[in-house]
């Protein structure tokens, strides 16, 4: 190793260390602020307390917003898993013309401005006469979750050895059983990670949901931002800390079952 190489290596380690601290800073700040005794965001906090967690538990509108978000995220992720898996199989195994277009269209909502999709859906649903906020949100959240599923599953299916299914059939399993016994376990890590990121993306979505809510159906991000504008106190830090714990739990489950390195592929 030459001297320049060594300097470059050391420099990359220093940058990586700084980046890790930089990336974790907002999460640490949020957790610290949530335990403050003060009603403003003073750092470091003048004292510690659980009062903002108590306040959070009393805010029924925040809790109903949380349930709406969990409901939308769960249902849309399940639908996206089914529809997305079928579409991924078509993209990877099909031989029909336009497969590339299908692949691009299914993943492109991820790279298109969320607000634009939201605005387009707002006008479209209004033209159709769909006025129900819950159904509008659910349909929109399928568009949000589907790209995450397809992106991961296409990558997983491209690596999957389909001759294993033939092998299982040769060994006497009927076709449907061969799929369940061979393909589903082989794709389980992809289902888990893509489902997790799709769920979290739905839970976090603001730009699309904002155009489709009404007074009774407000998702958690919308309620949180509204709360921050109206009454900025550390209650939101307590809610955020709850979301951080949720993400951490998902991460621990993911790393134990799939492995961190495979989660990001």
């Amino acid at each position: 190793m030459t001297l320049t190489d060594r300097i470059a290596t050391v420099a990359s380690w220093i940058v990586a260390l700084a980046v890790c601290i930089y990336l974790l800073t907002p999460l640490i700040i949020t957790v610290i602020v949530s335990f403050t005794s003060s009603s403003v965001y003073t750092l470091p906090p003048p004292g510690w307390s659980l009062r903002w967690y108590e306040t959070m538990a009393r805010k029924h509108d925040l809790i109903s917003a949380l349930w709406l978000s969990v409901n939308l995220a769960s249902i849309s992720t399940i639908i996206a898993l089914v529809v997305g898996t079928l579409a991924s199989l078509a993209i990877v195994r099909g031989r029909f013309p336009g497969r590339e277009i299908l692949a691009t269209v299914t993943v492109s909502p991820l790279m298109m401005p969320g607000l634009v999709i939201g605005v387009a859906l707002l006008q479209f649903f209004r033209d159709l006469g769909l006025r129900d906020a819950y159904w509008s949100l659910l349909l929109a959240h399928i568009v949000i979750t589907l790209p995450y599923i397809v992106r991961t599953l296409v990558a997983a299916l491209e690596k999957f050895d389909f001759s294993l299914i033939d092998a299982a059939q040769t060994l006497g399993l009927p076709y449907s059983r061969a799929i369940i016994k061979v393909m589903v376990p082989g794709l389980a890590p992809a289902f888990l990670t893509s489902g997790m990121f799709a769920f979290l993306a739905s839970m976090d979505n603001y730009p699309i949901s904002i155009f489709l809510t009404d007074a009774w159906n407000k998702t958690l991000p919308i309620k949180m931002l509204q709360y921050l504008e109206e009454a900025p106190d550390p209650t939101i830090a307590a809610v955020s800390s709850g979301l951080i714990v949720l993400a951490l739990t998902a991460l621990v489950i993911g790393s134990r079952t799939v492995g961190l390195n495979r989660m990001i592929q």
Binding site: A16, Y206, S240
Partner: peptide, 19 residues
């Protein structure tokens, strides 16, 4: 390093922008 990448990715934009 992987946790520092993936954990913030799973937390959501509102929490981080607020922080």
């Amino acid at each position: 390093i992987l946790i520092a990448m993936i954990l913030p990715l799973s937390v959501g934009v509102i929490v981080k922008a607020f922080a």
